[in-house]
Design a protein around this nucleic acid. Structure first.
Lengths: 216, 216
DNA sequence: CCCATAAAGATCTAATTGTATCGATTGACG
DNA sequence: CGTCAATCGATACAATTAGATCTTTATGGG
């Protein structure tokens, strides 16, 4: 049943949902009982219509004149994103970026927990980083299988990215969050999410260029 | 809006251009003289038509049967993105993420150079991180003005993000690359690029959820 | 108890992006 | 030297998604 009622949202909508969630949690802390799409939109500088449509897709129902009941709407978004049950993830590559991600506490609020961290460097293996002991990467596939970990986070150097990705897939990992500048080749059933800083920078640079040429 | 011949590309196109650029540079190193949209597409797993259209917008002209002359197409993309002349950027907030970004050497290949790094923590100020001495954040606006820095990279904690952004704007910075989970309020003329990990994670989680409900 | 109002919900329109098709061009090969 | 095939480039088409308008509903005030 849940496989039918689940709507498939567009990427822009999905990217906005965490913003709503963060704001709503803050509003709840302030003791607010209801949240209307209008105030959420105003707070985030978005169009109210967009917010309403985004919230609608989660299945939450609001009440006219009041808005959405706070607990309901938060629950609906979390449910929609699959953030109600935190899922375990393996992080591979404890370089500076890996360090940074391991140290970011916010992930647990988003349904993600670092079950373990791995590296291939003997100098790093055994060290404790932000409370996690770094394990040998050789153990990763086996552990992934045993713990049924579905999410892998790739923060290794580009040259070994494909090999590590293969190892992840061998371990049964179904989604890879790729922070390396590498185009990975994976089977169809594996979800690939690329986090490309260069792409973001490209958008920024281009916009800066356009702006500059408009009013130098 | 025809005061300049520069075309304004859509975001998806902009995000793909760095991928092309990286591949093309690699191909050039391998001694290739020409690059056809077809092989680029095949290498990156994209549709050849998309690649052709993307490359077309940069203004490069290709030759039938051969493709695009390597130097020309690389130059065209760099030019289009404004990566021919490296621009200086200030990084504010030398936490773990700031560390990671400062250590990423790839930026200089993308026309970005860290002119300086700043922090407010006395324990951090004066330290050298990846060759950059961390300066006091108080000096940032003044230095930005003097050095005509246009890009600011925000890697501070969420609570002070808005204040630091204001200081950046005061220093004349025109584009802010925001790595904090904060919705910043900035004047219209300031370009804001948000790097929201939670948003990416939302997309990943949702796709994983859809896939799981499809074939459990 | 009724009316005014604010907000949700549905429907429709427009824009953006991706996809397909077709012709033109040019280097390669027989 | 002529034909072929691959590739660019332009144009047209389709699908998805964002954005706008209108209607409905329920609440709070008079």
């Amino acid at each position: 049943m849940s496989q039918l009622e689940r709507k498939t949202a567009g990427v822009p909508t999905l990217k906005r949902l965490p913003l709503y969630l963060r704001l709503l949690r803050k509003m709840k802390e302030n003791g607010e009982e209801y949240a209307s799409g209008t105030v959420v939109a105003k707070e985030l500088g978005l169009d109210p219509i967009v917010v309403r449509k985004d919230l609608a897709i989660t299945g939450a129902v609001g009440r006219p004149r009041l808005g959405f009941p706070m607990d309901e709407i938060i629950e609906a978004i979390e449910e929609f994103l699959g953030w109600t049950n935190t899922s375990d993830a393996f992080l591979v590559g404890v370089g500076s970026l890996g360090h940074a991600l391991l140290g970011y506490q916010g992930f647990e609020q988003h349904g993600l927990r670092f079950a373990a961290a791995f590296d291939s460097d003997p100098d790093v293996i055994g060290k404790t980083v932000h409370g996690k002991t770094v394990l040998n990467i050789d153990q990763m596939p086996e552990l992934a299988k045993r713990m049924h970990v579905r999410i892998g986070i790739l923060t290794v150097t580009a040259s070994v990215a494909q090999d590590v990705a293969n190892a992840m897939i061998e371990g049964g990992i179904r989604a890879i969050w790729n922070f390396t500048p590498t185009t990975l080749d994976v089977p169809d059933h594996v979800i690939l999410q690329r986090e490309e800083l260069a792409s973001s920078l490209a958008v920024l640079s281009h916009r800066l260029l356009i702006e500059s040429s408009r009013q130098p």
